[in-house]
């Protein structure tokens, strides 16, 4: 409502399911601004919104799919990427975006992530990393920094975390970037750029989770975490992904690390199909069957 009492629409409102507001995210959470950046990037990219599909897994970030007024799928824990793979390669016209959290994409869904990157499936993955499992109350995850306290590392984490840009780049992603939820304009530019690129694009967004992570690690409010990002983020475009580890409350290297060209899954598929069949169309076959395939070794 504006001062005159009339409805004033924000430009992204048309892509939000207003009938689902208020959302479930906590005060101080970074997800609201990241979702805003995402929708704003979508608009700027000029992509046909009817062709955009948002796929999420489970967790706080996973709820994003339910708030966008676009074709959207809230799938099972960790499985957003293979579901999105099916959507994309069955209908290459779709612009597929996976929007999910670090626990979902990196722990239970880690295998799917590396294989989709290896295949260079044409999709954008926005991975919101809050260093813990927020929805279930703040447990240790594969991104929790060494020494951090969580509900399941009460005396401090002693598992080495994944560095997500390093993992994505090593697996074959053609576009790898990292920002924090404080870097809204840069994040928006990056997502826009990624949306207009082809291949497996991976964007990590560090986000505050004051409720379950920050308050156990000397950053009790969202504001504290934002202040931490402002004081400790170092923009270093083109940094080698192997050098961007994050230590507990340490420096965060942000920027665009990888932006390369590599044929996508569909490019290679089309190439092989063209080589095998040219422009020939399928026709009914009435010739007799060739040999049955004989056995194969058991798994």
């Amino acid at each position: 409502m504006n001062q005159n009492g009339s409805e004033q629409k924000h430009y992204i409102d048309q892509y939000l399911r207003e009938d689902r507001m208020p959302h479930i995210w906590c005060p101080g959470c970074g997800l609201g601004s990241i979702l805003h950046c995402f929708l704003s990037s979508l608009i700027k990219s000029g992509i046909d919104m009817d062709k955009v599909v948002v796929v999420s897994g489970i967790g706080c970030t996973g709820r994003a799919a339910g708030y966008v007024k676009l074709d959207s799928f809230h799938t099972t824990h960790g499985r957003a990427i293979p579901f999105a793979t099916g959507l994309k390669i069955a209908n290459p016209e779709l612009q597929v975006v996976v929007f999910s959290g670090d626990g979902d994409l990196i722990a239970i869904g880690g295998n799917h992530l590396i294989h989709a990157a290896r295949r260079n499936i044409d999709m954008t993955v926005i991975c919101v990393n809050n260093f813990n499992y927020g929805m279930t109350g703040g447990q240790l995850g594969p991104t929790t920094p060494l020494g951090a306290r969580t509900q399941t590392s009460p005396i401090g984490n002693y598992e080495r975390p994944f560095s997500l840009p390093y993992l994505a780049a090593a697996s074959g992603a053609v576009y790898v970037a990292r920002w924090t939820s404080m870097h809204v304009r840069r994040l928006e530019q990056t997502i826009t750029e990624a949306l207009l690129k082809r291949g497996f694009r991976f964007i990590e967004v560090i986000a505050p989770c004051p409720t379950t992570y920050g308050r156990r690690n000397r950053q009790p409010t969202g504001l504290d975490q934002m202040r931490y990002y402002r004081e400790n983020s170092i923009i270093r475009h083109g940094a080698d992904p192997k050098d961007v580890d994050i230590d507990l409350n340490g420096k965060i290297i942000v920027g665009k690390f990888i932006d390369i060209e590599r044929p996508t899954y569909s490019d290679l598929l089309d190439e092989v199909m063209q080589r095998a069949f040219g422009t020939e169309l399928p026709k009914d076959d009435t010739s007799k069957e060739e040999a049955t395939v004989v056995g194969s070794a058991p798994k």
Binding site: F73, P82, G86, L87, K88, A90, N91, L94
Partner: peptide, 12 residues
Amino acid sequence: ASMNAILGASWA
């Protein structure tokens, strides 16, 4: 992944 991919394809 196989099961998920066929669900995605079906929705496509």
